[in-house]
Amino acid sequence: MSIAIEVQNLRRVYRASTSILGREKKEIVAVSDVSFDIKQGELFGLLGPNGAGKTTTVKMLATLLIPTSGTATIAGYDVVHQAQKVRESIGFIFGGERGLYWRLSGEDNLRYFASLYRLDPSEAKKRIPYLIELVGLKGRENEKIEGYSRGMKQRLHIARTLLHDPDILFLDEPTIGLDPVGARELRSIVRDLQSEKKTILLTTHYMFEADALCDRIGVIKHGEIVALDTPQNLKQGVQDLSVIEMEVYGIGSEVLDKLRAQPHVDSVSLEDREQKQALVIQSSHGSEIVQDVINNLNGYRVERVVVREPTLEDAYVRLVGG
């Protein structure tokens, strides 16, 4: 299988002025050193915390940013020197609602972008109704998109990016902010694209999404790839762990530090869930340390304790730290 996307030692540094007159500049390394290949027809996931460099990497590949150093080729074309050829070969979505003309109807947006993608009018005439149907916007295509829900705008983005039927797609957090039904519908569209042998680079925060969709995953942290493998192999890397999940109330950072200092505790993370908190502890000793953990939470209300097998999310947490 041939290589569709080849990225070698990609680096991107932003210069931000730190003085009023703008003479003092500070360098911010968004992507430090990223290398990976994506095969034709592969769905490759790029995971990482906020600010890790995922969107910057995608923007460099989509020709919107010029790398500070390193090279990247898309379908054999260099993203800096053959940007025009790259643009003809790719489709892209940046998560969220931006990037559309809100005062126009969905169909007018697609007509405009079809023209920008240099589609023949007769081809556009066939392709637009097909795509509107594909993304489930039939019957709403003549409404101004300022009245669309977030999910509908996201689906319109999918239709937009498929107008010229590109072989390579960049989907940067396509399900961000969608309700569960909307996100599920969008994942189903991505699966269909996968079955059409499109090459897809997907970035996401949702581990179950990456686990369900991706052939391979690269985990990016501080602008560098810290792991690159299949979801299965990444999970294998944490098979020695068990995960203890507890529903707790009112836990502060000092308690987390105390737990992290306990023997056999690999990582500790805390997530707010409305009034409750979800405390997640990774440990190679599993249920053996549950009592010690509860002893350390003396005085705090603890409900529901579950010890489970690790998931891709646990592998991710171990890789990026928690």
Partner: peptide, 17 residues
Amino acid sequence: TGTLEMLVAMPTPLYVV
């Protein structure tokens, strides 16, 4: 609105638009 990035990343040159 984020459409400037879209326009720049299109195969049609921006001066035409």
